[in-house]
Design a protein around this nucleic acid. Sequence first.
DNA 1: CAATAATAGTGTCAATACAACACTAAGAAG
DNA 2: CTTCTTAGTGTTGTATTGACACTATTATTG
Lengths: 229, 229
Amino acid sequence: MPHTYEFARAALTVDIVVFALDEEDLQVMLIQRDLEPFEGQWALPGGFVRVDETLDESARRELQEETGLQDIYLEQLYTFGGLKRDPRERVVTVAYYALVNLEGHNVHASTDARNAAWFSMNDLPDLAFDHSMILQTAHERLRGKLRYQPIGFELLPEKFTLRQLQHVYEVVLDRELDKRNFRKKVLGMEIVKETNEIEKDVAHRAAKLYRFDKKKYDRLTKQGFNFEI
Amino acid sequence: MPHTYEFARAALTVDIVVFALDEEDLQVMLIQRDLEPFEGQWALPGGFVRVDETLDESARRELQEETGLQDIYLEQLYTFGGLKRDPRERVVTVAYYALVNLEGHNVHASTDARNAAWFSMNDLPDLAFDHSMILQTAHERLRGKLRYQPIGFELLPEKFTLRQLQHVYEVVLDRELDKRNFRKKVLGMEIVKETNEIEKDVAHRAAKLYRFDKKKYDRLTKQGFNFEI
DNA sequence: CAATAATAGTGTCAATACAACACTAAGAAG
DNA sequence: CTTCTTAGTGTTGTATTGACACTATTATTG
């Protein structure tokens, strides 16, 4: 047994699972690769980490470059370090996941001469590298986190109806919720506050708009409050 | 703005937060560094990832080399990639946390001519690098995870009393639990099964020993059962 | 061997939280 | 003014939680 080993100086990338919500489904942003390997295939947005940036910075930069998204919810997910996950050489990737609302941000359909698009989580193409596994891990994490922490707001515009909020939970948790119980619970937690506006341009009675009460949320969190839904 | 950037080929390490439980406190294993930087200071066990091993393999190998521990609960925690976390050069570390029971494994007090020791989480020395932050992150994760998943068994020997199990929860969650309610809950979940043995060498009535019922646990988990305590 | 000391082991009840359930109100569209 | 669509609202039975105190068993000690 040798006394010295070759240490990995792995190429380091970040990959980002960007979730959003349309009327129906949970959506994820994918980018069509314009380079080998996996040229033409769909993949998660991401890229190499630069020497002068932290992992978080790198993830934010890639997101901005590839999708135009800025100032959104972003959280580190997991680090994937399989030996053969990139056929060229060893590449370790730090995966992140992000939540955006489609109304508030206008997402580049295409940047860097690359083709970017939203896909429903219920109708995904084959993905490059091990990105399917990363995506699955992100989906599980989102479900788990939403259950206990109010991150559903990140998928909605600043002002939203309780119907929309319920829809977030139904889509992500993949089960129907009772309207009355849901409203009781959310209003009971007192982490949304009513605005004096109502939704516009709907062909029926308009619902009140609410806003996430971050201050109250932070105060309750410090007291160890539990936001289970 | 240049068209090419220098990509990070960061040195990659793993660091492992090994938790155990003594009669009183949650304990963590630390190793006294015998090299610069931070020579003489206490640090988490860990080391460089080799080119031919995955991250998980690397974590298990380091754990084995530095503490003699094998076949224990090990889970990836978070990846720390701050620019200055190592004063020599950029080093990205993938942190893991592990749970062991002190009775079942005999842990090297010392390996590699290094000084290894258990420290109470309530009485920690200054740590090298950003290891205090890693340790804090691990502690939060352990608390969060224990709350919803039955990993408390990993800190106990194969056969244990309900008193011991309750103690795990009390120490990790840092609050007292009611004995009757705790027993009701754990037995109600049916994920422990009684052995026909009792504890030995105690100066009072001996308690029954139980064993974690992994099969039942797996079955219930697949059905989406929730193990909240 | 009797008394003591230490922990094992057990049940009830009140308060709270949860889940199931259906109708009226408001506004838009024709 | 009729119809359509979604907003908005309470009650009740059931299950879960949390608070609470005593007897049983075993080892130890005098």
